[in-house]
Design a protein around this nucleic acid. Sequence first.
DNA 1: CTGTTAGCGCATTCAC
DNA 2: GTGAATGCGCTAACAG
Lengths: 300, 300
Amino acid sequence: MYNRRAADMRNRKSRTLGLVVTTVRNPYFAELTMSIEQEAHQAGYTLLQGYSLDEVARQRRLLESMSEHRIDGLMLIPASGSPTEDIHETVAAAGIPHVLIARSIPGHEADYVGPDNIRSGELVGRHLATLKVASVAFLGGPPVSTARSERLDGLTSGLRAGGGEVSYDVAASAAGGQGGSELVSALLSAGAVPDAIVAYNDMYAFGILNGLRAHGVEPGRGIAVASFDDVPDAAAQEPALTSVAGFPEQVGARAARLLLARLQDPARASRRVLVTPRLVVRESTTLWTASVSEAERNAS
Amino acid sequence: MYNRRAADMRNRKSRTLGLVVTTVRNPYFAELTMSIEQEAHQAGYTLLQGYSLDEVARQRRLLESMSEHRIDGLMLIPASGSPTEDIHETVAAAGIPHVLIARSIPGHEADYVGPDNIRSGELVGRHLATLKVASVAFLGGPPVSTARSERLDGLTSGLRAGGGEVSYDVAASAAGGQGGSELVSALLSAGAVPDAIVAYNDMYAFGILNGLRAHGVEPGRGIAVASFDDVPDAAAQEPALTSVAGFPEQVGARAARLLLARLQDPARASRRVLVTPRLVVRESTTLWTASVSEAERNAS
DNA sequence: CTGTTAGCGCATTCAC
DNA sequence: GTGAATGCGCTAACAG
């Protein structure tokens, strides 16, 4: 049987790409991963995959290992708090082209593909403003993550642009390994009862829906809930979850193609590709609208 | 930087393992995959991964590609209907040790690790018999799959062993690309109203719960629903889903370790490892019990 | 056009 | 002990 490795060694390439993601437990990343594999396989590359579990140490070992294995290029969803040195000392030092996905690394110049988190946040903010929501809490997400801060920034500016007064202001609490349910408990038992909760992503939102119920608050009606990613299960929640679609297949495909393009032309300027998001409005926020209008009718 | 590929070529090894799964959209396989990666990485191997999408043609291309890349060993969740020739002509011909996971290939002698599907089916069968369920429909799953037929066989024998009379008998309909919701529609509009529906796995079961509601049947109370895998979301369903836990982390870890052991000793006899399942009883079946006792009380 | 050779980057072997 | 040659399986360049 043909030994491609020997041939590749002669040609000084490996026909192999690396993909490091944090986890594939999140359906968004699962979809992203499958999309990338499709694209890579179609282009004649095989995929070396690893999971960082969002731990920089593990990520570093994976990057070293993949660099030693001489991947031709790398796609990486950076673990939160990834030091730019880790990338430099491993892949960059070995001259391996790479594209960052979904999260960028501050101060690290590189190709990037991800959903447009700022616009995503704005979409949610404007929507909530339309509902006359007066206080919002932002819950969940890795403590340090560009995706998280972008979504939060977008949310804030969207609320303002929508003309809503956010008196309670956007209280943001990140997850130190906690799930949505625990975050809600912490929020409510601190005495805070916002009109709406915006979750970092659907995984947190699902926990938040349960957490609210556990505290006797009817999710959607008592407190509006919105989120990001629009994973398939979002539509199946009770109440169905308002979420901003992030199109993981598109993000994955464009990331893979961007890397392939760079392999052709290593000198090209680094690009930043933002996938346009779409807000999908469902009961978890519209129910709250209804309750407000009711209250208003009662008041007048 | 150290070039492991050159070293490996000299040593006639690649320190690389292959993993081919059908999809990682199913959380069961996602967990399995992550568990395998952990184990492989810890043993100093990197993982070449591919998704067959349950298509034999795609699987074949992946196996060829991985064989050419000289993986030291392979872990495979066979696409349904995989011909044993495909394995032989690719990995076996190249002398690559491999272990099959979750599904076996009839007539193919190889290491195997998976949940004990027969016992899993029996657990569900006995449970339903206890509830005095008199008719059962088995829905979903790849048309040809050892996992599916094993679960079905176990279910049937479990129902019998539990002393239940299964008058409606176990009507089994496999999924030709259809989801749980469509399968329920087909079943009900054919005039069949079983006491219980057993799904091939949780993914189908989730669709079935929705399908039942769409047809005005309250899932759990009107028709009991049980399933396999016990994915995290199973407990979060409304009603919470009775399911047989299949412990994907355990299956993955044991598969990886079995492969690593074979790499040490290629001559050893092939083994068949079955992970012991556990039935997790929840409302989707216990509600039905309640409704039956009520009906009996009313009758007497 | 077909057959031979040199070298990709290592580890192993042999000579010194 | 240190240092130079050999070969893993290919492909490209070269010679016949």
